[in-house]
Amino acid sequence: MTPLTRIAVQNEDFSLADEYERLQNQAECGAIVSFSGRVRDLATTPLLHMTLEHYPGMTEKALADIVQQARTRWPLGMITVIHRVGKLAVNEQIVLVLVSSAHRQAAFNACEFIMDFLKSRAPFWKKETTTEGTHWVEAKASDEAAVKRW
């Protein structure tokens, strides 16, 4: 039987199509919502690449906890959370969240909930390398505010 939750922290890229395919095995779940995040270039100086650090062991546990919290709030089917680490170039994929449910509103809400908590609770850190050097990305107050609304 396919596990209901799949969590991966990896260097390799992922395929939305492959991951979506995996969620189609549950006939009772007619709704699938996906979010994918990519490396964007908002730096004032041109971004060369980004390096993502994580806390091996805790990061996976934190993601599993967030998924479990989502499951207590909404009736959900299968959930996939994939987050990449290591060196990533502009426009590369960083994160993928896929949620299936019998109801679209539950799937939409759970996908947002998981991303909001991932951004302010899961131990990942971004370091940007621009043409002028490297710096750690600062956490945003808006990310913490996003968690408070749940």
Binding site: G37, L118, F124, W125, A139
Partner: peptide, 23 residues
């Protein structure tokens, strides 16, 4: 995750880190 009042015991793994910035 815990706060600074959390007790510490022999053999524990205690981590310190800045606010997280994943996603």
């Amino acid at each position: 995750l815990c706060d600074r009042t959390e007790s510490v015991q022999d053999g524990d793994e205690i981590a310190f880190f800045p606010p997280v910035t994943g996603g």
